[in-house]
Write a protein that binds this DNA or RNA. Structure first.
Lengths: 220, 220
DNA sequence: TGTACATCAGTGAACGCGCGTTCACTGATGTAC
DNA sequence: TGTACATCAGTGAACGCGCGTTCACTGATGTAC
């Protein structure tokens, strides 16, 4: 027991190590959703356990039955958000050669942006917590992103083999850079769109940087 | 008076609107540095005014003489960090054509990383606060980055004019994407370097993506 | 060079609030027979 | 189908701490003459 509420394949346990049933899971989930909502509205610094409990119409004691503290709730939300990642990975597995490569790139960019639009506040705090050094959050970020990074990395190495990408490039670093760009742009795109860059132009532009860097080819 | 301690060309005022002299400026600066230090050590969520005061060996009342709250201190730190930006902008104004273009790109990447290494915690919280919608932080970010973005954007438009970059790309979006990539990688590079990507490989890789995207040319 | 006055700088001490946290308890649900 | 028992679920109420914040005050510094 590491103090967190543990979710295995079938069973979830509360802070006392007791099994959580159907009803409990529902309450737990409502607490998580309220946490996400308040994170969006008030920001991380002003998020209070008491507020979360109030929002769900329950008592603080209930919150503590399922989570050690607010950070843990955010950690669980990060894990839930990460469940969407396989869909994005599937897109990356699409074709990268020829015309359809650019299409693949567009689909990936679009998917990452939608992922962020859905989980905005949670993902931001997740990344901050990881950057601040919290190993649990580092792990979630790593688990979420490494399939993406690894796929892109492999594709880049292929392009290097074909002589289209310089051997001076580190495939791993390039892949990480691209994912970094996608994430930051996904969290930032609304602000850019307020300043006159249309959404589709933005997607197209990111897609082309992605395509170019991954394949070493200029987009058609 | 908007409630913040205002710094004009020569004069700083405290929370009561009184002029701050030499001695006061020193105390104020020590409070700022302690804030930055604690931000690094404890993270944003656990940063307390009382801790900052204690760290400087002064009383909380002194802190409130200069800042409305912790956020404002972080805002001032962000402004101070931004004073380094002109140095980076100078680098961007270097040559982008031919061999030396890649050198320019490397210098820019390196400078951004060093900037982040110095102000790590402050810049992270600055960006989070901006993303969370705080208009004062949005403004600081904008003021800090737009010279960079604008320069890159102009250079990309030049490459478009010469037919080396597709007209389907938005120069503004591409420039913003590159800066987004640089920032995120700058805040992330230490973690990557722990996983076997050397620092120089990382710089080289980012520089090549930057060079390629800005000029439309494959790096030499 | 000295004195008086204005302003700058700093703080002790206190207040009150509200948050985190816990415990002992009640009520709800499930299941064994 | 009914009863007893085990376990799941939820909470009221309270505690105490520590943080944010303020005020009235003292001490330091500067400057006018």
């Amino acid at each position: 027991m590491d103090g967190g509420s543990q979710t295995t394949a079938r069973q979830t346990f509360d802070q006392n190590g007791r099994a959580v049933g159907r009803r409990g899971l529902q309450t737990r989930q409502r607490l998580l959703e309220a946490t996400a909502e308040l994170l969006r509205e008030q920001g991380m610094r002003d998020l209070r356990v008491v507020d979360v409990a109030r929002a769900v119409g329950t008592s603080p004691a209930t919150f503590y039955q399922y989570f050690k503290d607010v950070r843990e709730a955010i950690l669980r939300l990060s894990e839930q958000a990460a469940e969407e990642m396989p869909d994005i990975v599937n897109l990356i597995d699409g074709p990268w050669r020829g015309q359809s490569g650019l299409k693949t790139a567009r689909a990936v960019v679009d998917a990452v942006i939608r992922h962020w639009d859905t989980h905005e506040a949670v993902l931001r705090v997740r990344n901050l917590s990881a950057d601040e050094g919290d190993p649990r959050f580092r792990r979630v970020v790593r688990d979420a992103l490494s399939p993406l990074v690894d796929r892109l990395s492999a594709e880049i190495r292929r392009a290097q083999g074909a002589g289209r990408v310089s051997p001076d490039v580190s495939a791993a670093a390039a892949a990480a850079s691209l994912v970094a760009m996608l994430e930051r742009m996904a969290s930032y795109h609304a602000q850019l769109e307020n300043r006159g860059v249309t959404h589709s132009k933005l997607v197209e532009t990111c897609a082309r940087i992605l395509f170019q860097t991954v394949t070493g080819r200029s987009a058609p």
